[in-house]
């Protein structure tokens, strides 16, 4: 009984602590603020710099950040949102809740070709198929080769996951109008299509497929955290589609100056050295000091669609995938 009372009071205490207004509230996703994610280290570094109190409000994932903004509208509590990706940028702007940051964020990596007055990238990655080099010595060298092969593949559902949507754009930009035939060909050697990233990736690690859709930075995790060298990303000659993770200031924020300072901090060398080894994505600026493995990752040519193009055709592409991959 005592333990229960203890726990209840701890619960109450925890809640009351969380409710004290912080100087800067950041909406983000759960794995970002987890113990091993970038959140805690970034918070510490930024608070030391600004002498202020930063608080994360974490929701399930990137899409949930946008949905929360949509539901709350102007009553939202966020000063900064952090963790939506470029695929959601158009919809997020359409809420009318995003404020241009008016910052000169300095030179970002050239391949990002970043030009936007409101959203600031804090990390990015290329979608890539990962394979086990101890099993496959001659990996495929292009998306066409993979789709025409009979190698077993696992990928994520574009209706429920961002990597899945990435593959959808990848196929569309390589195949154009012939995408339906490509999906059909891929379906003939697809093991399964999963709801989210981890289901696919754990099936792959269990040995259930030759290739799994993930990020070009995935091998870095295996090397740095597990000291395993066999997992590699396949470099495709057509180029790869990228996912860029973004942060922005809300129009309703009461503390925009601090928000701007935080965005500037996100692209600083200090923050950029933390993010890649905790979020396992690539830094957005050059010359960041990182474990050597980051230098050995594949660096593909970037292809794909602008956020506006993707936003306009997404529904139609989904229908196309749905009907051709189901055959």
């Amino acid at each position: 009984m005592k333990t229960i009372i203890g726990l209840c009071s701890a619960l109450a205490l925890g809640i009351s602590q969380a409710s004290q207004a912080a100087d800067l509230r950041v909406y983000t996703y759960d794995s970002f603020v987890s113990e091993w994610g970038p959140g805690p280290q970034l918070e510490q570094a930024f608070e030391a710099r600004c002498g202020c109190d930063l608080e994360y409000v974490a929701v399930e994932d990137g899409v949930s950040i946008l949905n929360r903004l949509r539901i709350e509208g102007t009553n939202n509590k966020a000063d900064v949102i952090l963790g939506i990706d470029d695929g959601l940028m158009v919809d997020t702007r359409a809420t009318g809740l995003i404020e241009p940051h008016g910052l000169d964020i300095g030179p970002l990596r050239q391949e990002l070709a970043w030009q936007d007055d409101s959203f600031v990238p804090f990390d990015f990655g290329y979608f890539a198929f990962i394979y086990d080099s101890s099993k496959i010595s001659q990996p495929v060298r292009s998306l066409r080769a993979l789709i025409d092969s009979n190698a077993s593949v696992i990928y994520q559902d574009p209706r429920t996951s961002t990597p899945g949507q990435g593959l959808m754009m990848w196929v569309k930009s390589v195949y154009g109008d012939e995408a339906p035939a490509a999906w059909q060909a891929l379906a003939s050697h697809t093991v399964t299509v999963t709801k989210g990233w981890w289901e696919a990736y754990s099936l792959f690690l269990a040995g259930d497929a030759d290739y799994v859709l993930s990020y070009n930075s995935s091998p870095a995790y295996h090397l740095v955290a597990e000291n395993k060298t066999q997992y590699r990303a396949a470099l495709f000659s057509e180029g790869h589609v990228a996912q860029v993770e973004l942060a922005a200031i809300t129009r309703t924020s009461q503390n925009k100056a601090l928000g701007r300072e935080f965005l500037q901090f996100l692209v600083s060398p200090e923050a950029q050295a933390i993010i890649p080894v905790t979020n396992w994505m690539l830094p957005v600026i050059d010359n960041v000091e990182l474990p050597p493995v980051f230098g050995e990752l594949i660096s593909p040519r970037r292809i794909g669609f602008s956020a506006e193009e993707a936003g306009a055709s997404r529904q139609q592409w989904l229908r196309e995938w749905r009907s051709s991959a189901a055959q």
């Binding site: 559902d157 379906a187 093991v191 399964t192 299509v193 999963t194 709801k195 289901e199 099936l203 991959a325």
Partner: peptide, 19 residues
């Protein structure tokens, strides 16, 4: 259903609602 279903052939209403 999604993990073991093998592809969009195996789609339940719940998936559609989630999407």
């Amino acid at each position: 259903v999604l993990a073991l279903g093998g592809g969009p052939r195996a789609t339940t209403l719940e998936v559609a609602i989630y999407q």
